[in-house]
């Protein structure tokens, strides 16, 4: 049994909230750079150039990359041999988010109730997904999510007979419908299988996988590639103004499912796809 003070978690969450809102992870930076080289449209290339410049200004002048610094989504993978001390783990995560968003000059975008809509003024609470894993460490993945793209996300309850082609149509259709609203070029997280809620969660998790990596299942890796190719033929392009770069990546995750179902979650993320990880 390893004792772990929850304040360590809080501090890590604070630091990650700030860091990732000012500087994208390496995989995203190089994907954008590569896109600027391969984009065929002139306006598209111009927009991608603006996005690269934006990243430089954000880092140099300490201005968040985007004004929507997101709702904090936290995946906590907790080793089963960890014993938390010093308070509640949920409070610690929210304390880290509150400090990160306040001390980091990030936007407070969370309301306490979806209908009365009063701002909580510190961006809490986070959306926390826990899982228990072997070992005595805690892995924290933070993915602040902007809602321009979150709002364009979808769950489809397909039929088994729809198969791979059905999945492709669902994914490409969701991106087509999102069009310019989701701040393309987008990153598409897809969850296939499980249940209604599981596929949505897988889709969210898929967005935290490095852009440029592929699924370790060959048939899924092939599907990712095909989906990306079809999406980039939509001519939505950077900022929705046309071009060959509508998506930077399609990341798919799967899970076993029921004999009667083929759930598909499509979580769309913009080019400000923020994900950061640390292990304590």
């Amino acid at each position: 049994m390893r004792e772990l003070d929850v304040r360590q978690i809080a501090d890590a969450v604070r630091d990650m909230c700030i860091k990732i809102n000012y500087e994208l992870s390496e995989d995203m930076q190089s994907a954008l750079k590569k896109a600027a080289e391969t984009e065929k449209g002139e306006l598209g290339r111009q927009i991608l150039g603006i996005l690269e410049q934006n990243l430089e200004i954000a880092a140099d002048d300490s201005i968040p990359i985007c004004q929507d610094t997101g709702m904090a989504v936290v995946f906590l993978e907790v080793g089963q041999d960890v014993h938390f001390t010093g308070g509640s783990i949920e409070d610690a995560v929210n304390d880290g988010v509150a400090r990160g968003y306040t001390e980091g000059y990030l936007r407070k975008s969370v309301v306490r109730d979806p209908l009365d809509r009063v701002n909580t003024k510190d961006n809490t609470p986070a959306v926390i997904h826990y899982s228990i894993v072997p070992g005595d460490q805690v892995r924290i993945t933070l993915a602040p999510k902007g809602f321009g793209s979150e709002n364009m996300s979808k769950v489809f309850m397909l039929k088994p007979a729809d198969g791979a082609e059905g999945v492709l149509e669902a994914v490409v259709g969701a991106v087509r419908e999102a069009g310019p609203n989701a701040c393309p070029p987008v990153v598409v997280g897809v969850g296939i299988g499980g249940t209604f809620e599981k596929c949505a969660l897988l889709a969210k998790k898929a967005l935290t996988r490095p852009v440029g990596s592929s699924s370790d299942k060959p048939h899924i890796a092939a599907l990712e590639k095909e989906a990306l190719a079809r999406i980039n033929e939509l001519d939505i392009g950077p900022a929705g103004l046309g071009g060959t770069t509508t998506a930077l990546a399609v990341n798919m995750e799967t899970y076993p499912t029921h004999i009667a179902g083929l759930p598909v979650g499509v979580n769309i993320c913009c080019h400000v796809n923020r994900h950061i990880q640390t292990t304590i």
């Binding site: 002048d61 201005i63 990359i65 929705g240």
Partner: peptide, 13 residues
């Protein structure tokens, strides 16, 4: 008009 979404640092200048 549209401004470029996700370019908030650049636009703030």
């Amino acid at each position: 008009f549209a401004a470029v979404g996700g370019a908030g640092a650049l636009l703030s200048r």
